[in-house]
């Protein structure tokens, strides 16, 4: 599946009301490690989105905007999340709880 189609599938799942674990955010390294460990055992795209807490809109947490566009795992031109456990096409304004800069 190419990036566009995969991105559209993600959008469709989230827009249809898929409930994801938006909170708690990965405040500490331990939190992030726990979430990525769960991601490694995820079964399919739907479960990945749930565990990572994806949203179609930017989450503001502790006064900091956390869009994919400023995340270290985001490839700007490809519009792609390069985190090994995700590796998903995304949009700049989306957000997940593994955001980091």
């Amino acid at each position: 599946m190419d990036d566009s189609a995969a991105r559209e599938e993600v959008r469709s799942l989230l827009a249809s009301g898929l409930v994801t674990e938006v909170f708690p955010r990965a405040d500490s390294q331990d939190d992030a490690l726990a979430i990525t460990a769960r991601l490694r055992g995820a079964d399919g795209l739907r479960q990945k989105l749930v565990i990572a807490g994806f949203t179609l809109e930017t989450i503001v947490y502790a006064g900091i905007e956390q869009p994919c566009s400023t995340c270290m795992y985001f490839l700007v031109h490809r519009r792609y999340c390069e985190l090994s456990e995700l590796k998903l096409p995304v949009e700049p304004e989306w957000s997940c709880r593994l955001w980091r800069m």
């Binding site: 955010r25 990965a26 405040d27 500490s28 390294q29 992030a32 490690l33 947490y61 502790a62 900091i64 956390q66 955001w99 980091r100 800069m101």
Partner: peptide, 9 residues
Amino acid sequence: KTQTVMGIP
């Protein structure tokens, strides 16, 4: 592993 607090190094 880069240690972060609320996503910031």
